[in-house]
Design a protein around this nucleic acid. Structure first.
Length: 464
RNA sequence: GCCCCUAUCGUCUAGCGGCUAGGACAGCGGCUUCUCAAGCCGUUAACCGGGGUUCGAUUCCCCGUGGGGGCACCA
């Protein structure tokens, strides 16, 4: 068996899409699973649409996801790794010329209308094409048989010559793709199913050049969620861009885990898997053949699961990164010990790092919002005003040294009146945080301190 | 229009001829009397249709239908 060499070959012509990330991931997983090589090749032949910004985005997104490449360009123009470069198609013109000449010389290509065409072998005939509304020349050929590692045997007729060099002198995708895969000794082409129909062209090109085609593996596509309409996910769909998850401070590991489950699964019921385990279990024949619809809720759940188990220091680093990007960041993080206590109090409660701001406002300002609906709900039950008054009266004598002490203080207050802790909890929470959700009220009391709690309770009483 | 791929709960999926069709997310209900978007427990919900093959089809084959993709001097 020749060594496994796979490649991810994006074009820097747009934002980095979740489908691209999944294709990159499956290639990366297969390379890591087999001990092979993962190549990054930049397909930047479309000069009109390329941009350096989008190129940088490819590097950033792959790096953020943890999909490191063994061969390919280095970000920031720092040269490249690997012995099969250059890894940007815009720098490989001489190689394409060489292969073009070879096909011309061997009679497998010809010039017409200023373009270079690949020539199919067989009897020619003309036919009117209804779809394109013009007469086209067809070639009688045997069907191309593709042995796909995921699809099995696929047969497709390739019956028209096609352009490999445009009249402006630039090579087209099919040609450069095949030439590069040959030159870079790519052993397995793992790509989206949208390329399955192109594969017959590619196989003919391999044959024309005189090289045995590599192994093909066409993975299913990611489709829009049902509520987002029909068809495959496009860049305009919500949740389609990797950048978005990065900005929302998702955990890349959670996204990778979720993506790996779109079209693949381990042999058991596990869903949350360490990356090393996915690498160990991943294989091409286990990949599904049908497309998968994207489910942002399941991703969000996965992200939350990962968040919950982050060690304290790691979570704190995530929280700092999040607040660093916010206007009130410096103020929020000014007191490191205070910040740490709040974040750890809140970690088990949030679904996503970007909930942190809204979820912790009341720790950092006296001017926090009051949730009207929550107020209505809390004030409608029992006699919250009486409870509030009792709490205000009792608080100066209460011990705030620990959660347990606070709990004991409120409980003894309640028991003296034949009430329960819960009778005080709701109104206290509303007065001190402005909401009816959040971490344990005892924890909030402790972190805020007796003085501020007392002030807030009084202020609320005065305003209600 | 032509070609290719595909088809199990709303969604991701397990199943590879005989199963009470399993799990997860979402939903719903309950518990947790310290709330809740968390946790725990429970629960609703699926084999697209029609023909075959077979003692027996969710499973194999064919035909429909649905879904997806492709049919450029885009990639």
């Amino acid at each position: 068996m020749p060594p496994v060499r796979v490649r991810f070959a994006p074009s820097p012509t747009g934002f980095f899409h979740i489908g691209s990330a999944r294709t990159a991931l499956f290639n990366w997983l297969y390379a890591r699973h087999t001990g092979g090589t993962f190549i990054l090749r930049i397909e930047d032949t479309d000069q009109a649409r390329n941009s350096e910004q989008f190129l940088q985005l490819i590097y950033d997104s792959l790096t953020w996801l943890g999909l490191d490449w063994d061969e390919g360009p280095n970000p920031n123009g720092l040269g490249e790794r690997g012995n099969f470069g250059p890894y940007r198609q815009s720098q490989r013109a001489a190689i394409y010329q060489k292969y073009k000449q070879q096909l011309l010389d061997s009679g497998r290509a010809y010039e017409k209308d200023g373009a270079v065409w690949f020539k199919l072998l067989g009897e020619r005939y003309k036919v009117f094409d209804d779809h394109r509304k013009k007469e086209v020349e067809k070639v009688k050929t045997a069907p191309v048989v593709i042995h796909d590692r995921i699809r099995g045997r696929v047969e497709r007729q390739e019956d028209e010559d096609f352009v490999i060099f445009r009249s402006d002198g630039n090579p087209v995708f099919h040609f450069v793709n095949v030439v590069d895969d040959i030159e870079m000794k790519v052993s397995h082409i793992i790509r989206g199913e949208d390329h399955l129909s192109n594969t017959s062209k590619h196989v003919r090109l391999y044959e024309g050049i005189g090289v045995t085609p590599p192994v093909f593996a066409h993975i299913p596509l990611i489709l829009k969620a049902p509520e987002m309409g029909q068809g495959k996910m496009s860049k305009r769909d919500k949740g389609a861009l990797i950048e978005e998850y990065q900005q929302r401070h998702f955990l890349p590991g959670a996204l990778v885990n979720y993506l790996s489950l779109l079209g693949w699964n381990p042999d058991d019921d596990r869903e949350k898997l360490p990356l090393a385990e996915i690498v160990k279990l991943f294989d091409l024949p286990a990949v599904n053949q049908s497309n998968a619809k994207f489910d942002g809720r399941k991703l969000a759940n996965m992200n939350m699961t990962y968040l919950l188990e982050q060690p304290a220091d790691r979570f704190l680093a995530l929280a700092r990164a999040y607040f660093s990007g916010r206007p009130n960041g410096p103020a929020v993080m000014a007191n490191a010990a205070y910040f740490r206590e709040i974040m750890l109090l809140v970690q088990p409660k949030i679904k996503s790092v970007d909930d942190l701001g809204a979820y912790t406002v009341y720790f950092f300002t006296e001017d926090f919002p009051l949730d009207a609906k929550a107020k209505e709900k809390v004030m409608a039950k029992g006699d919250p005003k009486a409870r509030l008054a009792e709490l205000i009266e009792a608080i100066s004598a209460m011990d705030f040294s620990s959660d347990a002490a606070i709990e004991a203080g409120i409980k003894s207050l309640a028991e003296g009146r034949g009430l329960g802790f819960g009778d005080y909890q709701a109104v206290a929470r509303l007065a001190v945080t402005g909401t009816n959700t959040g971490p344990n009220i005892t924890g909030i009391f402790r972190v805020l301190g007796k003085e501020r709690v007392a002030q807030r309770l009084q202020k609320f009483q005065a305003e209600t």
